[in-house]
Structures are given as structure tokens and as C-alpha cells.
């Protein structure tokens, strides 16, 4: 066997699951979207505060497995201060990381930073959806297909 459970459940992931970063509803969010995985019941809300096309602040809440919670937590850390197009690029790279069995370029891995701990998901195809749920939710916001929170 070439993979180990610890490749999937790395300490970083377990920690982020236990104490997720940027967890909680954002009261003055400018954009909100809901992500839902009907198969396992994972549900999350993503809150963004944006300034034109820059993400100033981001948080999430909801319930899900360790992979989906840790992924969302790591995502929020990675997104702060990024422009929409930078965020989309990270999503594309991240998607490659968790779905394709090719080594990514060093520069890409550097860009991904801590997100790289989720690479183990690649060996567990049924869990890819868990790792990408938050990113798809983000994507819906960036594409403008989400429900926008009114400031009222």
C-alpha cells in the first residue's frame, strides 16, 4: 500500500478541524453563499467582506467532516487580501492538487502554501468533494451566482 491514513489525516488537518480558523458568522459581510453536499449532509456558509475585487476578510460556519472543515479553515487563511482573480487561480491549483496524480511545479506548491497538506485527498477519490465544497462555494460568490447579502 502506498498511502497511509496519516497522509490524509495530517496533524494540521486534525488541528484545523478541532479549532478552525475564521470560524463564525461575519456580521458585516458584503457577500454570503451557502455550500451543501446532499450526499453527506455537509453544509457551510461562507462570508466575505470585499472591496471592489479584493477579499478583505473571510469567515465560514457550518458542519462537516474533518476534511471539509479543515479545508474551509485553510482556505480562509489563504484568501485574505487576495484579489478575485488570484483566488480563482488558487482554486484551480488546489483542484489539481487534490484530483490529479501529477507533481505540481515548485512555484505552484509555494503559492498553495499550507493548502498542500490536503494533497492526501487525492488517494481517497470519495473525499475530493469534501475538500472542494468550500472552494466551489467561493467560486459561486466570485462568479456572482450567490445570494448577496443586503446591507440593510
Amino acid at each position: 500500500m502506498t498511502f497511509d491514513l496519516r497522509d490524509l489525516y495530517q496533524e494540521v488537518i486534525v488541528d484545523h478541524n478541532r479549532n478552525p480558523k475564521n470560524f463564525g458568522k461575519m456580521e458585516n459581510a458584503t457577500r454570503v453563499a451557502e455550500g451543501y453536499n446532499p450526499l453527506c449532509g455537509d453544509k457551510l456558509h461562507l462570508y466575505l467582506k470585499t472591496d471592489n475585487d479584493r477579499i478583505d476578510d473571510v469567515s465560514f460556519d457550518g458542519t462537516g467532516c474533518a476534511i471539509s472543515v479543515a479545508s474551509a479553515s485553510l482556505m480562509t487563511e489563504a484568501l485574505k487580501g487576495k484579489t478575485f482573480s488570484e483566488a480563482e487561480q488558487i482554486f484551480r491549483d488546489f483542484h489539481k492538487l487534490v484530483t490529479q496524480d501529477v507533481s505540481l511545479q515548485d512555484s505552484t506548491m509555494q503559492q498553495l502554501g499550507k493548502l498542500a497538506v490536503l494533497a492526501g485527498v487525492r488517494e481517497f477519490p470519495t473525499r475530493v468533494k469534501c475538500a472542494t465544497l468550500c472552494w466551489h462555494t467561493l467560486h459561486s460568490i466570485l462568479e456572482g451566482t450567490e445570494t448577496t447579502v443586503s446591507t440593510e
Binding site: 491514513l5 489525516y9 449532509g41 455537509d42 467532516c65 474533518a66 476534511i67 470519495t126 473525499r127
Partner: peptide, 23 residues
Amino acid sequence: EGIHPHDLGTILDYDGIAIRTGH
């Protein structure tokens, strides 16, 4: 406690144990 059923399903499967997780 502290372990989502979905994670449990993956961990058990690794040991060759098939259970169902979900609703």
C-alpha cells in the same frame, strides 16, 4: 464524539470495514 461519521467511514474502510455513513 469529535469525529464526523464521514471520516470514520474512511478510516474503517482503510481497515477493510464497510459501514454506511450519512443520513
